[in-house]
Nucleic acid binder design. Sequence first.
DNA 1: CATGAATGAGATTTCATTCAT
DNA 2: AATGAATGAAATCTCATTCAT
Lengths: 200, 200, 200, 200
Amino acid sequence: MSSKERRERLKVKVHKQILEAAMGIIKNEGSESLSIRKIADSIEYSPPIIYSYFLNKEAVLIELSKQGYTMLINIIQSELALVTGPKERFEAMLMAYVDFAMKEPELYQLMYTVGASVADVGKAFPALATFINLFREQIQLVAKKDTSAEGSFWCNYLVCVSFVHGLVAINRYYKDIDPEMNKEVLKKAIAGVINTLECS
Amino acid sequence: MSSKERRERLKVKVHKQILEAAMGIIKNEGSESLSIRKIADSIEYSPPIIYSYFLNKEAVLIELSKQGYTMLINIIQSELALVTGPKERFEAMLMAYVDFAMKEPELYQLMYTVGASVADVGKAFPALATFINLFREQIQLVAKKDTSAEGSFWCNYLVCVSFVHGLVAINRYYKDIDPEMNKEVLKKAIAGVINTLECS
Amino acid sequence: MSSKERRERLKVKVHKQILEAAMGIIKNEGSESLSIRKIADSIEYSPPIIYSYFLNKEAVLIELSKQGYTMLINIIQSELALVTGPKERFEAMLMAYVDFAMKEPELYQLMYTVGASVADVGKAFPALATFINLFREQIQLVAKKDTSAEGSFWCNYLVCVSFVHGLVAINRYYKDIDPEMNKEVLKKAIAGVINTLECS
Amino acid sequence: MSSKERRERLKVKVHKQILEAAMGIIKNEGSESLSIRKIADSIEYSPPIIYSYFLNKEAVLIELSKQGYTMLINIIQSELALVTGPKERFEAMLMAYVDFAMKEPELYQLMYTVGASVADVGKAFPALATFINLFREQIQLVAKKDTSAEGSFWCNYLVCVSFVHGLVAINRYYKDIDPEMNKEVLKKAIAGVINTLECS
DNA sequence: CATGAATGAGATTTCATTCAT
DNA sequence: AATGAATGAAATCTCATTCAT
């Protein structure tokens, strides 16, 4: 029992260590540079041990992306907790999203890449539903008309998410965009989107 | 003469074959899976031959991307030729852009990836200047205020390009978005952007 | 325990095998012809295994050279242990040096080549310090004047080492020099050098 | 006739160009970096043309080394022409040798490497006989006893040449030897050698 | 006479994954 | 439960040399 408990705890601990090590490597060296051996070295275990916790390297990446979604959702929720006005909440949500992607570029990139590589992103990332619901709530609040119809919401959601993801991606493309410019672009776009939502 | 011509034609042909083979592999297996050997196998030549046409693998990818830019610009210009109203032209430009990216997703993805991987994207893709100028013209026409200041233009450019690129990227992420939905999203966003531009 | 020991022994054995195989290839085909694959073939392992024992090919060559220095130093010290007179010791040292280089020509050549190819030969071969100190001692004994000043010693050291290395190198060039002739040349040169040292 | 002459002249010219190009590459980039293609590019001909002038790459290297010997001999003879005293002539010869090797390190290295790689260096480099005769003459002059016996001369020759070649080689090994130190070493060694020769 | 084109052979290195122990 | 050892598969790239034209 005690022994079983201990084992269980160790298992959880190593699982966590693997992910932390992988996350560290990705943040420091980029996800392209992640290798099973590097993770193993980092946690001071042998490479095969990783296969007793994860099916393969892809599984590690998926798990990491899941954590990324949890982080992203938490950050957005934290920011949402600070404001009440509809527009302000909407704006806070999008800005928190961009902030996260800019501060953790490698992790965000991984989340996108992994999502694009799996067959069913909804299954791979259950947290995505929560993420989408956050948008659902804020969009509903800010929109004058009813956006509860799935098609209607999804359209608005895509407008928002396309723009935010696009801005982040474009910053990987043009590497020298001034942060001030980014803020300006973001504000302008948010204003435009809100305007659109109100009229929709 | 005839012999020289023939040889010249063969050279052009092989050059083309290499790029086509590379493009084919990228379309079928994704750009990550492209290798010099696969290209060589595909054109039924030995791997080293590719190095007499291109400096290295990266050069093949850059060339492919350049072709992509040429195609994109041509398509946009073709569409622009058909309409005259400022808003219509603006809309036509963005829709042509999205159409291209949707019809050639792997090529578009490659253009983005290569652009993000080089140090100076402007040097790597001279055509990018033409591309940006297309935006400059349409934005100028549609905007009420003066957008000729570089900062002002660049902000508007980023808003547009972020959104369009984002929409394309999001379609790689959520693989089952209905084309009709995409059109709707695009129209909504274009309306919002035009509105923003008019007020800017 | 026993299993661990066995493994440890195996590891040491393979390490040794790699170096021996490399040495064998170098002796038979020259160091230019050495390749990772040849080593692997020779020890009947796959090429990548070598990278779990050595960082890269250069590391194998450096290790081989280090062993060469250890051998050379040991041989010189063995010979020095047999004689006591200053001139005799000096002579014994140089003759042991030449003997080693003549008996292991490819290894000696490798030691030179690797030394010439690295940025800091002193760092690459720590044993070189010991080697130089052997010269320092014998030169000091045989010289009448004080040679403890670094510049003075270094000059004498270079005279000695240039000659010995040169003799070995010249034997690679003129392949048919009679060993007796070599001895004679060596003796003559040693006499000359001793004479120079005594007067310095 | 005229046409034949022209062709003959062109042939000689291209032959020369090949060697000059190869020499240039070796001097600038080292002999390891020499390739048939580089030569061809440099003379603006195609690679196969080189094979109509030389059997293979090795033949180019041998020819280059031959030129090196011619240069070396000329330099030594120029210096010899300036002095008359036996010791002075001997010294001038050795210093000219070292100077040449230090000023053209890559070429000198090539001359040594090629010489060591061929079966019969005397056949490969006919000029070597002239070179050896220069030593024969100077050694004869400086030696008190008769050195005309081949064995006796050869022994003295080897002493000289070993030392000079060794000094040059050692400078490739210890890369930071002060030129002043080299001069000192050389002078000391020359003094020693002359002393030895006088007593022999 | 000259060469463009082509390639065979080979180099080093990285990595996910497995398996006997 | 853990791992050291091992490898198969793959990647990019270089170069001397040949041959049909």
